[in-house]
Amino acid sequence: MNFRYFSRYFHFSKQQRIGIFILFAIMIGLQVFYLLSDFEVLDVEDSNKDNWLAYQSEIDKEKLDGENKKTTNYLFNPNFISDYKGYKLGMTVEEIDRLMAFRKENKFVNSADEFQKVTGISDSLLNKIAPLFKFPNWIQQKAGLKTRQVNFVKNDFTKKAKFEILDINQANQEDLMKLYGIGEGLSERILKQKEILGCFVSMEQMKDIWGLSPEVIIELNSHFKVVIPPSLKKIKVNDASLKELSQFFYFKYALAKQIVTYRSMNGNFDNIEDLAKIKDFPVEKAKIISLYLEF
């Protein structure tokens, strides 16, 4: 083998030899550093680990307490019991249906005994759920009755010979607050709704007011009626602009836009039935809405 041929590749100048020497020195230094250094990864303790574990422990304890805690049973009016509520209380489907049929006749049970007669529940179930019954304040328990016998009579307010039935559109806050269950907040809400609508046209509109319980609505219907004032400015549905229609309480902007589009393509509306053909029209409130419109 001719080594002279390869020797020319290993002929370096003085500066190159110095450079190679320095390179080897650096490589050897790095190897020594690598061998002498400890590169073992240490577990870094999270400074908040103990706090987190303590917090998680509290959460687990709360969950356990919540599972062991007994369900709180709140008082309720049995006249307005739902299917689910009745099922949870232990009533059968037939017993619940009997109560629903009784209520459809616009009748009310006023005592635990009457509730049992209507539904046909057992004495043991009655003993269990009767303490949860809460009837309106105008029904008072008679004194000296036998165990489980809960009969009620109307209070002095309703015993008065006759009371004047007022026009809800003329009622003020003081008139409304005379009724049981209506305070300052609810009375202001009723008056605000009247202001938005211009006036009430039906006592059915009480159901649209947030916060009014069924018992309070019954009281309102007993003491107030609706007299539509002649000053009510009706909306001319065939001439009203999109802005005017969208400002009406029962019409949202999207529905108002559909009304204007339908009117421009098909002509004027003759009655509420024509208007109810539009998609998303609140058909269930058509009768009330018609009293605010002029065709």
Rank of each mutant, 00 (worst) to 15 (best):
A286K: 03
K104W: 08
F3V: 03
I121V: 08
F12V: 07
K49P: 00
E58L: 14
F21W: 13
T147F: 09
A161R: 10
K233V: 00
L145Y: 13
S290M: 09
Y9R: 08
Y87W: 09
K207V: 03
Q140M: 14
E184C: 09
K252N: 14
N169L: 03
M177V: 02
Y55V: 01
F269Q: 10
G267S: 08
L75K: 11
N271I: 02
S37G: 14
F200G: 06
L197T: 00
T119C: 15
S124D: 13
N151V: 00
S82P: 02
I228Y: 10
F108Y: 05
E204C: 02
R17H: 09
A143G: 08
Q116K: 11
D38E: 15
L179A: 03
R17V: 11
P78K: 10
E62V: 07
D167A: 14
F157V: 00
I165H: 07
D274W: 11
V118G: 11
G66D: 13
K287N: 08
F249P: 01
M203I: 03
F33I: 14
L220T: 01
Y55P: 02
N266P: 01
R189M: 03
P78M: 12
E45V: 13
K287C: 05
T71S: 10
E204W: 12
S213P: 02
L197Q: 08
Q56F: 07
F295N: 01
S111Y: 12
K117F: 04
V32R: 13
Q170G: 07
G198H: 06
F251H: 08
W210Q: 07
L176K: 04
I168T: 00
I26Y: 05
K61W: 11
E184A: 13
